[in-house]
Amino acid sequence: MSRFFSVLVALALLPFAAVAQSAKPLTLAVQPSTDVPQILMAIDRKLWDAEKVEVKVVTFSTGREALEALLGGQADFAVLTEYPATIGILRGQKFSVLADMARYQGLRATASKKWMNLASLKDLNGKKVGTTLGTNVEYVTSVLLREGGAKAEVVNAAPADTVPALVRGDIQASVMFPNLYAQARKLLGDDYQEIKTKSYVSHALLVGSSATLESRKAEVEGFLKALLVADKAVAADAAAAQGIVLAALKGVMTPEVLKDLWLDYDYRLVLKDDLPALMSQEATWILERGAVKAPAEAASVKTLRGAIADGFLSRLSPGAVSLAK
C-alpha cells in the first residue's frame, strides 16, 4: 500500500520536476527528406553544439505529423510545406514561420502512354487523375488543371499507392510527391510521360511554436544561426550535402535520383513576399472548397504575413528577408 502511495506522490510531483529542469533541449520535428539538407547538415556537423544549443531531433514520416507534434506541445520546431502550414494558420493555431528553407519547382503531372497521351495539360481533361487529397499535391493538381483548362476526376490515393495505381490503370495520370518520380519512371519505362507545372513552387518551411519563440529567444537565435551556417555549407559543397542527405535517407534514394531532384531545388533560408502570396492563394482555395470554415479575411495576404516571424532571420541575415510590412 505504501508503495502505491509512493508512486502516486511521484506522479503528482512529475510536472514540478519537469519545470525544475533548467536546460530542456529544443525539440525539432522533421521528416528526413530532400527538403531539409540544411537540417541534416547541422545534425551531421554538430552545428547546434557549436552554438551551445541543445537540440533533440524527432523524425516523422510527413511534415503534417511534425506539425501535429508541435501543436500538441511535443515539439518546439517543425518543418513542413506551406500547404499544411496554411491550414494550421487558417485554423488559428499558435505557431509562426521562421524561415523558408527550400523551394522546389519540379512538381509535375505524370501519366502512362498505355492509358493516355500527355502532350499538354489539356489532355488531362476527362481523365482520372490520382493524387493525395488534403496535401499540397492536391493543390498542385488544381493548379495543373487550371493551367491546362482541363476538368478531371480527381481520385484519392495514398502516396505509396499512386505509382501502382498508375501502372495498373486505376488512374490515367497522377500528381504525386517528388520522391516517387523515379519509381514511376522505372516501372512505366517507355510509357512514362510528364509535364511540369510553371506556376507553382513548393516551400519547405521551418515553423516554431509561439510559446518557444516568446520564451526562449536566445536559444531560437542560436538554433537559426547554426542553420544559417549549414545553409552556407550546403551552397558551398552540394556533393557533400547530397552525401549527407543520402545517408539520412538510408538507401531509399540513389545518388542519380537525388542529383536529378537537386536541380529543381533552391536551397537558402529566406523570407520573401512570394510566400504569403502563395499561402493566400492556397487559403482562398481551401476556404472555397469548404474544408475549413473561416472568414474570407483569414485568407488575405495581410493575415498570412502576420504568421511569419521574420524578426529572427532579419537580425541574423538581413539580406535574406524581403517582406512587405
Binding site: I87, R91, Q93, G134, T135, N156, A158, A291
Partner: peptide
Amino acid sequence: TGASSGIGYRLQEARQYLR
C-alpha cells in the same frame, strides 16, 4: 487509400485539415 468518400476517408481528410 483510394477512397473519396466514406467514414474512414472523412476521418483522414479531417486530419489533413486539422478538423
